[in-house]
Amino acid sequence: MSATLTAAPPPATRLEHALEIRGLFKEYTAGKPVLKGIDLAVAAEGITAIIGPSGTGKSTLLRCINRLVEPTRGEIRLRGTELTGLRGRDLRLARRRIGMVFQEYNLVERLTVMENVLSGRLGYVPFWRAWLRKYPEADIQRAFMLLDAVGLPEHATRRADALSGGQRQRVGIARALMQRPEILLADEPTSSLDPRTAVEVLELLAKLTAAENVPVIINIHNVDLAKRYARRIVGMAGGSVIFDGPPEALQTHHLQAIYGGEDWL
């Protein structure tokens, strides 16, 4: 499917862009692209939700941005910095500007909650400070502030593997915000959580990123949650963007085009 079913010009394009993606291709095996020329500009604020069936390249798209996955070709610009082709120190300096929240939280299980939150500063502090846990006082203050904000004020010294799923994702959000990121990528952040916890975590993510003016790109399976929290929905299918517009514009026929079939609706 190649035609973009754009319902209305996304309001986001009028604002300054935090992230611009142009002509992004990714092939894990040569000749079989997972991403087929993605063009996407993300505004400097608000939540952009990417929806689409499993295996359509949503995770690959997010991972190309912070280069956990190497794009095959295309451009990705973070506030003017070209991210593709960065290596070594330059890549690390770019990564620390991009926060990421993962589906399975990806906390370091055997470290404490505080160590996990402070690991968000690893791109900023020298190795010896990280090794000896001698973080700058300002970082520690911010870590406690974020733990309060995500509702885990008493858990700083507990090990991450002692927490529940919802608590872990809260720590994951605190770790990402600890980076003071210019953009936050969230890859299915609520898919491993029960429905009520999912809403609570998403609510928290929306509130904190709005308070800190961090734009968010979120991959999400739950279309209702996407419509509720995002100001813009991007629908992907078969490695291409086939819908891009505000939540109100997302109609049944768009969903049929994105997910295929109609019996499930």
């Binding site: 620390r96 993962f102 990280a130």
Partner: peptide, 19 residues
């Protein structure tokens, strides 16, 4: 997954090993 998360913060090789 844990390695990926620490890499995503901008940590280098030694910090990834340590954390």
């Amino acid at each position: 997954k844990q390695v990926e998360a620490i890499r995503a913060t901008g940590a280098g090789v030694m910090k990834v090993l340590a954390y």
